[in-house]
Amino acid sequence: MAEIAVTDWIGREETAQGRVEEIQAAMLAATLSDAGATAPRFGDRLPALWHWIAFLPTVPMRELSEDGHPRLGGFLPPVPLPRRMWAAGALEFLKPLSVGERLTRHSRIENVAMKEGSTGNMCFVTVAHEIAGEAGLAIRETQDIVYLKMLDRFRAPKPVAPPEAPLVERRVPVSEALLFRFSACTFNAHRIHIDLAYARDVEKYPNLIVHGPLQAMMLAQIGTEHMGRAPDRFRFRGVHPMFHDRDMRLLAEEAGPGQLRLCTARGTENQGLQATAEWEDR
């Protein structure tokens, strides 16, 4: 069989329709409650990043891969590397969205790049999204997905120490129930979050992985609480897996006027997800 050029997927586009129903918002708020989230009602403003539950991957069971993700080769390229994760993202919020509002997401594959890393071949896929509400374009978003080979053992990235004197700190208990609830809210069957035997025996992680989007939503929540409103821009990237066997710290420190530098942390050992949030003067 001829090798498929994954770069042929650059420029591929798709459009999806969705909305966040009131019951979905209530479920997500219950899941994020330890970070301070409360449930918005129909017509209320949608908190930052909550549009992620408006467009769910509702493929049939037969179209799931062994890892629980939808099979590649449709919109996303058929990358010949079995491990995948949401590595980073950047968002610009232009207009507010509300619970129950009709949303449209237009997505485009911006780039597909093969690279060599410390653990072997990697493939980075960059997807650009534009999310519009009933009043027009509301969010510009870029999503970076990384694909990796399967390892024979877990190799931890170099740890990045958490800030010693954060401006804001909240401690969140992490459990299998939390990971299951978030997987249910996002209709995400990725087994590294909910199947301990698979996570340990197949992907060689020592424990279940806390979702990157879950960490990002919690960081956006504490940033919103501290600044009094949702950010205008939000960027994040994963620097170390966050495992489910320890409480997770949510930390924020000032990064300049109208800016916060945020991270999740495992005790004082390492950061998990790093983020920056920015607020414009109004």
Rank of each mutant, 00 (worst) to 15 (best):
W86P: 01
L91S: 02
D34R: 12
L94D: 09
I109T: 04
I209P: 09
Q215K: 09
Q271Y: 02
F180W: 14
L28V: 12
L167A: 13
L151D: 12
R12L: 05
A177G: 06
R171I: 15
A135Y: 04
F55D: 10
L260D: 05
P159E: 04
V79W: 13
L260W: 11
G73D: 10
R282N: 12
V160G: 00
E66A: 15
P166N: 06
A184G: 07
S98G: 06
S33A: 07
V239K: 11
E141L: 03
A275W: 01
D144A: 08
R282I: 13
M61L: 13
L179P: 08
G120V: 06
Q259C: 11
N188V: 07
V174A: 09
G133F: 01
E66S: 10
M227W: 05
T38N: 09
E13V: 13
P57V: 07
E14H: 13
D245N: 15
G136I: 09
E110L: 13
F124C: 01
E116W: 06
Q24R: 09
H129V: 07
P157D: 06
Q17I: 09
L219F: 11
R71Y: 03
D8N: 14
G238S: 14
P166V: 05
R84D: 08
R170V: 12
E169M: 13
T119C: 01
L179E: 06
E3R: 14
P60G: 10
